[in-house]
């Protein structure tokens, strides 16, 4: 009797979660979630596992994340090794064959991207360098359009019944993006020189004509020494650099010190969707970034 009940419970568990028709999409970063929202809207079930308050480089694989990935039909992630510290554990521990590497439900968004900063030679003495290139491509409208197109194709293929709905939403997204692009283009920075905290804004710089002349971090992921800050301040004075860009994730101490010594303006940019209350989707993210940079 007890065995029968136990068996019944196991079966109920097995079919829970698969009973509903909606495609379950799990994404790592909030901006990917925003794109999935634009394309899938109310016809997909979306789970975002990384919070906007977290540094995407240092996320820990929580059991709740394993559970989310367990129930996923599709897992979409940034790629380029940004999630190397936790995603492999999530994928293996999820016990979900749909999202294993090489399966239809495993979507590395960077495969749609023109990657920059691909190092020719890399070792860890250079700091936390990403060996496959700079992974922070979400500040690049051109790349984001391609990623959105990729997401559309994946969703359409896995949920053929809603394919037309997804493609229509993609067309709307594209035209909205093109509409915005002309406004954004007007904000071209014509080679304006800035100092950045981390190698986070390289795509933004490439797309909008910003020149990043140096970094507060001497090497990616390595905090600066006093001597290094001193050299940076001198460089800023010499080259007349009046702007330091950072995000709310990075410590303010060094940045404020530099600003104090050089009179530079500190611009705190949002690093992802949701990192500031007014940033509700990818478009407002780009709007805010470009407005704050003015």
């Amino acid at each position: 009797m007890i065995k029968k009940i136990a068996l019944c419970i196991v079966f109920v568990f097995m079919f829970m979660g698969t009973a509903f028709g909606e495609l379950r999409v799990v994404v790592t970063l909030p901006w990917i979630g925003s794109l999935v929202n634009e394309i899938g809207k109310y016809r997909v079930h979306l789970d975002v596992i990384v919070k906007a308050t977290q540094d995407p480089h240092f996320v820990e694989a929580k059991p709740s994340m394993i559970l989310a990935v367990r129930k996923a039909d599709v897992l979409m992630y940034n790629g380029l090794d940004l999630e190397i510290g936790y995603l492999p554990v999530l994928i293996e521990s999820s016990r979900n064959q749909k999202i294993q590497s090489g399966m239809a439900g495993n979507v590395d968004c960077s495969r749609y991207v023109k990657v920059i900063d691909h190092p020719d030679k890399v070792d860890r003495s250079m700091g936390d360098v990403h060996p496959f290139g700079n992974p922070h491509y979400h500040f690049s409208p051109k790349n984001i359009e391609r990623v959105a197109a990729g997401i559309t194709e994946v969703l359409s293929r896995l949920d053929t019944g809603n394919a037309d709905f997804f493609r229509k939403n993609m067309a709307v997204f594209s035209s909205k993006l093109h509409g915005k692009e002309s406004a954004w283009k007007a904000k071209h920075f014509h080679g304006k020189k800035v100092i950045a905290y981390h190698k986070l804004f390289e795509y933004l710089a490439a797309d909008f004509g910003l020149t990043i002349s140096g970094y507060v971090e001497p090497k990616p992921g390595i905090p600066p020494s006093v001597a290094y800050i001193g050299r940076l301040i001198e460089k800023m004075k010499e080259e007349r650099i009046h702007t330091v860009i950072t995000t709310s994730l990075y410590p303010r101490k060094e940045v404020d010190f530099i600003a104090d010594k050089t009179g530079a303006r500190v611009i705190v940019l949002p690093h992802d969707v949701g990192s500031m209350p007014e940033i509700v989707d990818w478009f407002t993210l780009m709007d805010t970034v470009l407005t704050r940079l003015q």
Partner: peptide, 12 residues
């Protein structure tokens, strides 16, 4: 052998 049921709470 491990089993991760699709419950609302992580249970292994």
């Amino acid at each position: 052998f491990t089993y991760l049921p699709p419950l609302p709470v992580y249970t292994l």
